[in-house]
């Protein structure tokens, strides 16, 4: 059961990701990205990360991607122009990419052969209570710093996007 679920949503994720890369119009890419995030949320659930899955839907798919779509609409970004000129990226990009993929897969295979079988419900530590405990005791400082970071981001975004620039 877990295997089937995994395969379904993995394939959805990959297809949507390919779509993000391949589509010419940014809006299509954005919608595909939302699809990726949704399937990833399900995969998180399978791995026992309930809180994270919800956060993914709410924050990522719900807020960040909507922001993206707003900006695309605002900029009236149309279909992409003709082929550009970046010789380095075109020549080297593909081989490097394949090399990277091969390397990463090799390493993960070698050092984690098989690994534990992922069974839904086997890991019960991803509850909101657990995360909250860790966040407010062990990781309190990063938490506070992150809040400052968000403040900075807000101020920055407001300043950058003003009209008289």
């Amino acid at each position: 059961m877990d295997v089937i679920l995994f395969l379904i949503f993995a394939i959805i994720a990959v297809v949507c990701a390919v779509n993000v890369v391949v589509q010419t119009h940014p809006i299509s890419s954005a919608i595909s990205l939302i699809g990726v995030m949704g399937s990833l949320a399900v995969l998180y659930l399978l791995l026992g990360a309930e809180f994270l899955a919800m956060a993914q839907i709410i924050v990522y798919a719900g807020a960040v991607m909507v922001l993206f779509i707003f900006v695309i609409m605002l900029l009236n970004a149309g279909t992409e122009a003709k082929r550009g000129r970046s010789l380095t990226a075109q020549l080297l990009g593909l081989p490097l990419l394949i090399a990277f993929l091969a390397l990463a897969s090799y390493f993960s295979q070698r050092f984690y052969p098989g690994g534990a079988a992922v069974h839904f419900g086997a890991f019960k530590g991803g509850t909101a209570q657990n995360i909250g405990m860790a966040l407010f005791t062990q990781y309190l400082l990063p938490f506070e710093v992150t809040s400052a970071l968000i403040l900075i981001a807000i101020v920055g975004a407001v300043v950058l996007a003003r009209k008289e620039l």
């Binding site: 970046s86 380095t88 990226a89 490097l96 390397l103 050092f111």
Partner: peptide
């Protein structure tokens, strides 16, 4: 070159080298 994409290509290249090196010296565990 001022071109972001070629910069990114070189970053990728560098990270591959890094991975290789770490793997060869056994730091990837």
């Amino acid at each position: 070159s001022g071109n972001i994409r070629s910069y990114a290509t070189w970053v990728l290249f560098g990270s591959i080298i890094l991975l290789l090196t770490l793997g060869l010296i056994g730091a990837v565990r």
